[in-house]
């Protein structure tokens, strides 16, 4: 087998037997993070002092934990207090929790970017604060957040390789398995790197497209 063939077979094996888990873990973690991010930001914006202080503290903690440590805590640590989760679920929850902290910050900064003047305009036609948020501020903040959220997805996708540490067979794990079987690391690792790169590159094109659309709507410059 020449090296191109080795690269291609490694790629095929990784796509067939690893990538689906990478995508599954990162997509579910992303949406878990989005839901958490929305909840966090709702509480920060609409909740009282104490509630938003608590959320802030939680965000600081979640951002301060190395992802792999959190995965270990959930997968190996929680069983000792009676909560046993399988490794895929642990990875989704761990990465989702951390992503929730980041996504809440992405959302919050977009809310701040639209808030003041749009809020005044919304209130001045007689909308309630709730309607102002749900029909004016949040829809715009979500649009403004889209580039950041897609970026966040690429970060989770890459971070999902950490699930290797708790035995989830995802793309990176599969590459390592191939390497161990072939006694040759370079080609399979190159294959999986190219794969991550291709996905991230495509998503960065999506981000550019979103920026373009946003500019048409008059956001940013």
């Amino acid at each position: 087998m020449n090296s191109i063939e080795q690269l291609l077979t490694a790629l095929i094996i990784i796509v067939r037997y690893g990538l689906s888990n990478s995508i599954l873990v990162s997509t579910l973690a992303f949406f878990l993070g989005l839901i958490l991010g929305l909840i966090f930001v709702f509480i920060e914006v609409l909740g009282g002092r104490l509630a938003s202080w608590t959320v802030n503290l939680l965000v600081v903690i979640l951002r301060g934990i190395p992802p792999v440590l959190l995965l270990f805590i959930i997968f190996y640590g929680l069983p000792s207090i009676g909560i046993s989760l399988n490794n895929v679920v642990s990875a989704i929850i761990g990465l989702g929790l951390i992503s929730g902290a980041y996504q809440s910050q992405i959302l919050r900064s977009s809310i701040q970017a639209v808030a003041a003047r749009q809020m005044e305009a919304a209130l001045s036609i007689g909308l309630s604060k709730w309607s102002a948020y749900t029909s004016v501020i949040f829809p715009q903040a979500l649009r403004l957040s889209l580039p950041g959220l897609v970026n966040e997805y690429t970060i989770i996708l890459k971070d999902s390789s950490l699930a290797y540490a708790i035995g989830v067979v995802e793309a990176f794990t599969q590459a390592v398995h191939i390497a161990q079987a072939r006694f040759e690391y370079f080609t399979p690792l190159l294959a999986v790197a190219l794969l991550y790169l291709a996905i991230c590159f495509s998503l960065s094109q999506v981000v550019n497209y979103i920026y373009l659309k946003l500019r048409v709507l008059g956001y940013g410059q």
């Binding site: 639209v114 003047r117 749009q118 005044e120 305009a121 919304a122 001045s124 036609i125 004016v136 829809p139 715009q140 649009r143 709507l217 008059g218 956001y219």
Partner: peptide, 12 residues
């Protein structure tokens, strides 16, 4: 009714 200096139309 309030009309603002910077229009403040809902951009979306």
């Amino acid at each position: 009714g309030f009309v603002f200096q910077h229009f403040n139309l809902f951009l979306h």
